[in-house]
């Protein structure tokens, strides 16, 4: 189990700016649904962008446990390490 470092979290936060309609500060604890108000489909669309940026695949099965940016960054870190 790899844990995301601060750089990765920062990059992902940066990529999330298009979804950050309210312009809140994005941290590892930011919740996709509760804080960013993005629905499950929008999260899956975001995953497509992240996959192509890092040349990884993130099966959507892994998203069921993901609520926050930090949790998502861990999934990305694991996929990159694989």
């Amino acid at each position: 189990m790899t844990v995301a470092d601060q750089d990765l979290i920062a990059e992902i936060s940066e990529m999330l700016s298009g979804l950050n309609k309210a312009g809140i500060e994005i941290t590892a604890d930011t919740d996709f649904n509760a804080d960013l108000n993005v629905d499950s489909v929008a999260v899956m669309d975001f995953v497509l962008t992240v996959e192509d940026r890092y040349d990884i695949s993130i099966p959507i099965n892994q998203l069921s446990e993901v609520n926050t940016v930090g949790q998502f960054a861990d999934v990305v870190a694991n996929a990159r390490a694989a």
Partner: peptide, 26 residues
């Protein structure tokens, strides 16, 4: 797909290149 238990990888709608990239990663 959920019911199957298989790994589900989503590609961009109507985009064969997006599929190609994902198949190539596997």
């Amino acid at each position: 797909c959920q019911l199957s238990g298989a790994e589900i990888i989503r590609f961009a709608h109507n985009d064969p290149t997006s599929l190609d990239r994902r198949l190539a990663r596997s």
